[in-house]
């Protein structure tokens, strides 16, 4: 198992290097720069600004010094926000993004698996069609539609829940979490259903039932463990997706998260902030993929054998 993890970590290094290099050069080759504004900046001022951010040096030298800083964990100063470092901006924005991602994942797993199990146990009945149709709608409905719709119903009409905010009044975290988690819940429902259907048709399930075990023991103890493997494999990328894809939800609900500023950074050509958040998210994605692979290996004996893990 440790060898497996170590080799995956080693594989991650070239991946991250490629991400950093590509992002670094792509943002710099994009037209416009951090200091191009509608009101023309006096050339002397522009030169002074470029000197303060070392943009006056050759590109390769900039890249070299960026990498050196990065190795020391320093993402550099933000271009858009004077006096702020990218580390500071990420540290300020990430907790809310992570919390939102976690709740959304919770929503996705609970709702998705419940719906998937119900559907799998009653294939081709209304208890299959209703949750699966809801899941299809959930997959298709974009968050920028679902979010405002939920706000309209629960925030403005019924006045049950706050229309926006994060951690300011009780209950304001519910709508953003549901909005962000809904599409993933739908996906998990479909994965659970197909995983469960496959497992439920296995011989050992028939054996379990033949032994006279109660249905809930059959389902939750015997079937679920095998049935959720596709879901577990999906969770890593899903959580990474929830973290890096929360921009729309953060904007709709005024969540003080990193997603909003990640996207703004691109529009502002805030080179260091774009790079910093990209690298940060890349690391997260690598880590969560690794975690979900490890978890899947632990759940699935066949996979474990294939990896040479005892």
């Amino acid at each position: 198992m440790w060898r497996f993890i170590a080799s995956r970590v080693l594989q991650a290094i070239p991946v991250l290097f490629i991400v950093i290099t590509l992002t670094f050069f792509l943002v710099r080759f994009a037209p416009g720069g951090p200091f191009s504004t509608e009101k023309a900046v006096v050339p002397e001022v522009k030169r002074a600004l470029e000197a303060q951010y070392q943009l006056d040096q050759p590109l390769l030298a900039q890249f070299g010094s960026y990498l050196t800083d990065l190795v020391h964990g320093d993402f550099g100063p933000s271009f858009k926000y004077p006096g702020r470092t990218v580390n500071e901006l990420i540290a300020a924005g990430f907790p809310a993004t992570a919390e939102l991602g976690l709740y959304a994942l919770l929503v996705a797993v609970v709702l998705g698996m419940a719906a998937g199990i119900v559907a799998a146990l009653n294939p081709n009945s209304w208890r299959d069609y209703v949750p699966m149709s809801a899941a299809m709608i959930g997959i298709c409905m974009p968050t920028f539609l679902l979010g405002p719709l939920l706000v309209l119903i629960f925030g403005l009409w019924l006045e049950w829940l706050p229309v926006s905010g994060w951690g300011e009044v009780s209950g304001d975290k519910i709508l953003p979490s549901i909005t962000l988690g809904a599409a993933y819940a739908a996906y998990i429902a479909r994965l659970t259903r197909s995983g469960m259907l496959e497992v439920l048709s296995q011989d050992y399930i028939r054996t379990a039932r033949a032994k006279g075990l109660p249905e809930y023991v059959v389902v939750f103890k015997h079937a679920l463990r095998g049935g959720v493997i596709p879901v577990v494999a999906f969770l890593g990328p899903a959580f990474a997706g929830l973290l890096s894809g929360s921009f729309v939800v953060e904007t709709i609900f005024q969540v003080p998260g990193l997603g909003r500023f990640f996207v703004q950074a691109a529009f502002n050509r805030d080179y260091t902030l774009i790079l910093g958040s990209t690298v940060f998210f890349a690391v997260l994605i690598v880590v969560f993929n690794l975690l979900s692979d490890v978890l899947a290996a632990w759940l699935n004996p066949r996979l474990r054998a294939g990896l040479g893990v005892k």
């Binding site: 797993v109 609970v110 049950w160 829940l161 009044v169 009780s170 209950g171 519910i174």
Partner: peptide, 18 residues
């Protein structure tokens, strides 16, 4: 899963406008 369900439900019901 039962614990998750309980947490989710309690978070959802603990709301009031303020």
């Amino acid at each position: 899963f039962r614990a998750l369900l309980v947490i989710t439900l309690s978070v959802m019901t603990a709301c009031s406008g303020g």
